[in-house]
Amino acid sequence: MIEFRLEGRSGIAPYLQLVQQVKHALRLGMLRSGDQLPTVKEVVGSIAINPNTVLKAYRELEREGLVEGRPGVGTFVLKGLDGPPPHAHAALRRSLLRWLRSAFDAGLDHESVEALFDSTFREAAEEEIA
């Protein structure tokens, strides 16, 4: 079982904060397949949050295939978030290094590289959500 918390002034929608916290717990193995998420009422009672927000977060996790709602029982974790195997990480890292070198060769400084990465990442992420 995990406990949720809510960051008041982050500008991130409360339901997204819950989704991110579940994914974080899945990635770190604090939540495993078969574990039950806190019931809506438990979350509402512990952090004084809108029940619709909790439902929306759980629906989103369900849509992504990470959890499963069993009517009358609760919401359960279907699978962990292991991410790709280590060798895939290494290959991605090598191609990123190649890209970084070409960016520096083109005359970009550290901040410009970060800005370019950020804006491209944002664009890609927004497209994926849409």
């Binding site: 008041g8 409360p14 009422k41 509402v44 009672g45 952090i47 004084a48 949050i49 029940p51 927000t53």
Partner: peptide, 29 residues
């Protein structure tokens, strides 16, 4: 907390006025 638990039990529509924005952010949809 009492209000949100009450809402969970009864699915009542709520309209609350306030000028305390940080409190509303977590409860209002």
């Amino acid at each position: 907390q009492t209000l949100m638990e009450g809402v969970t039990d009864t699915e009542v529509t709520v309209l609350l006025s306030s000028h305390l924005l940080t409190d509303l952010e977590r409860v209002c949809d």
